[in-house]
């Protein structure tokens, strides 16, 4: 699904990623760990194609196609989607307008209506997008948009942050739906999840885990083992892992 080779990325004139390699197969979900400032969000933004994150070296291959030079919206239409940590407020644009934009003309209104009901979206659909939203409301709205968009690869930036313990199960359920986790076979959808606490992994099953440290991947192993190791030995302990 996604193959990254020697990716170097700079933003604000400073190189943040110094050659990252990554491979996510179809139907797989991987987790990305790392301390603040290690470059996790930069990696997601670069995969998504935000112009502020300039790719200075390496390649991104998505479903066999080199998308290193593809624009943000081209990548979205090819099947990459992202949930935002701090999305902007769009005055006058309602959440439901965003959802229909994500559907891109596909007649999936019923599915979305059913989903939003299950997600306790309530009046959120009628409200101006992200205007006065709580942390939890942002997460739910972001995931609802992604569900409508239906990308083959979902990039999720800390989906559990700011969500209380009751709602985290709900968020987990949405992500499982998004990544077709109910399918045991022929699952196509893949995901890359940034998580600080690892809480989301109690609800969403992830295969591989990576630790990103100072712009380099320093550990690559089973996601749960990776998390246990970080808990025991800290991020620095992971440096030993790849040696």
């Amino acid at each position: 699904m996604l193959q990254i080779q020697g990716l170097r990325v700079e933003t604000g004139g400073k190189e943040i990623l110094h050659g990252v390699d990554l491979f996510i197969g179809a139907g797989e979900t991987h987790a990305l760990f790392g301390p603040n400032g290690s470059g996790k969000t930069t990696l997601l933004m670069a995969i998504m194609g935000f112009p502020r994150y300039k790719i200075t070296g390496g390649r991104i291959i998505f479903r066999g196609q080199d998308i290193t030079r593809a624009s943000l919206d081209e990548r979205a239409r090819l099947g990459i989607g992202m949930s935002f940590q701090r999305p902007p407020v769009l005055r006058g644009v309602r959440t439901k307008d965003m959802v229909s934009a994500c559907l891109g003309g596909r007649e999936d209104g019923e599915v979305v209506a059913r989903m939003s009901e299950r997600l306790n979206m309530g009046d959120l659909l009628e409200r101006e997008i992200n205007y006065g939203f709580s942390g939890g409301e942002i997460k739910r709205s972001e995931l609802l948009q992604l569900l409508a968009q239906g990308p083959d690869l979902s990039l999720l930036d800390e989906p559990e942050s700011g969500v209380d313990l009751v709602n985290i199960a709900l968020i987990g359920e949405m992500i499982n739906e998004l990544l077709e986790k109910d399918l045991k076979r022929n699952r196509k959808r893949s995901g890359l999840i940034i998580t600080h606490t690892g809480h989301i992994l109690d609800y969403v099953n992830a295969g591989k885990g990576y630790v990103l440290l100072n712009g380099r991947i320093t550990c690559e192993r089973d996601a749960h083992e990776c998390l246990d190791s970080i808990k025991k030995r800290g991020y620095e302990g992971c440096v030993e892992c790849l040696k």
Binding site: L90, G92, D97, Q149
Partner: peptide, 19 residues
Amino acid sequence: YLMARGLTRNEATAMIVRG
């Protein structure tokens, strides 16, 4: 934000103006 949802730059601008 809108382009990341698959809208072209023009479509995104139009949607923001409409809002």
